[in-house]
Amino acid sequence: MTTNVLILCTHNSARSVLGEGMFNHWAQTLGIDARAYSAGSTPSGRINPMAVEVLERAGIDTSSYRSKSWDEFSKPDAPTMRVVITVCDSAAQETCPYWPGSPVQVHWGYPDPSNVGTTPDDKRAAFESTRQVIGERMHTLANVPFETLNDAQLRTLLETL
């Protein structure tokens, strides 16, 4: 059975999208039956172009990516999530909706690369650095033996990653 992971950030325009892209890249590369999705509490309606640029430079197809509400994943017909990860501090502070299946929830905060630097090169470097840091953690997550862990064990493990 596919392990589904939902990555949340308030606007679903950068960090959550980087997490989705990197987790799915690693799951596919490693042959893991897992899938990441991303969403936001108040989606911006667009993916930050710098997030798209750094993912595409890493060889990740972003053509199907879009900024979307987390409400899509709280509906009865939505994929059942095993894990929900918040990646920005404002999303961690918000009350999340009820998630079908009661997934394990964890917060992995990252600074917003949109707020770094003043030049396009500075911002590009911040996005690339964020992609790499998130990518490393998503690689570790993709290697988690989901099927052998109960929720308490999984939560404990995810809090240490």
Results as ranks from 00 to 15, higher is better:
residue 127 F to G: 01
residue 55 L to I: 12
residue 154 L to N: 09
residue 140 T to W: 15
residue 75 K to P: 08
residue 58 A to S: 15
residue 39 A to L: 08
residue 89 D to P: 08
residue 10 T to A: 00
residue 123 K to C: 09
residue 54 V to H: 02
residue 108 W to V: 08
residue 101 G to I: 09
residue 140 T to P: 04
residue 13 S to L: 11
residue 115 N to D: 03
residue 112 D to F: 02
residue 24 N to T: 13
residue 81 M to D: 06
residue 63 S to A: 09
residue 97 P to F: 11
residue 28 Q to M: 04
residue 90 S to Y: 11
residue 148 T to N: 10
residue 110 Y to W: 13
residue 125 A to D: 10
residue 57 R to N: 15
residue 61 D to G: 04
residue 102 S to L: 14
residue 62 T to F: 04
residue 125 A to C: 03
residue 74 S to A: 13
residue 78 A to D: 12
residue 22 M to W: 03
residue 132 Q to N: 05
residue 11 H to N: 01
residue 81 M to T: 05
residue 16 S to L: 04
residue 141 L to K: 04
residue 116 V to T: 10
residue 100 P to K: 02
residue 78 A to N: 13
residue 39 A to G: 10
residue 161 L to H: 07
residue 147 E to P: 06
residue 154 L to S: 07
residue 22 M to P: 01
residue 69 S to C: 04
residue 151 D to H: 09
residue 80 T to N: 02
residue 89 D to T: 05
residue 55 L to G: 10
residue 83 V to L: 11
residue 101 G to K: 10
residue 36 A to V: 12
residue 134 I to C: 06
residue 91 A to Q: 01
residue 109 G to W: 08
residue 73 F to P: 07
residue 161 L to D: 05
residue 139 H to F: 11
residue 159 E to R: 08
residue 140 T to K: 11
residue 113 P to M: 09
residue 115 N to Q: 14
residue 54 V to T: 15
residue 6 L to M: 03
residue 25 H to N: 13
residue 94 E to H: 12
residue 37 Y to N: 05
residue 102 S to G: 10
residue 131 R to T: 06
residue 38 S to R: 08
residue 49 P to G: 12
residue 34 A to H: 01
residue 49 P to E: 09
residue 101 G to M: 09
residue 33 D to Q: 07
residue 72 E to G: 01
residue 161 L to Y: 14
residue 68 K to I: 14
residue 87 V to Y: 04
residue 79 P to N: 01
residue 83 V to A: 05
residue 157 L to Y: 04
residue 47 I to C: 12
residue 82 R to N: 06
residue 158 L to D: 09
residue 31 G to D: 00
residue 132 Q to A: 12
residue 157 L to P: 03
residue 148 T to E: 13
residue 104 V to N: 03
residue 56 E to D: 00
residue 79 P to G: 04
residue 84 V to F: 14
residue 63 S to M: 12
residue 1 M to P: 14
residue 120 P to S: 13
residue 44 S to P: 00
residue 33 D to E: 15
residue 129 S to F: 13
residue 119 T to S: 15
residue 64 S to P: 02
residue 12 N to D: 09
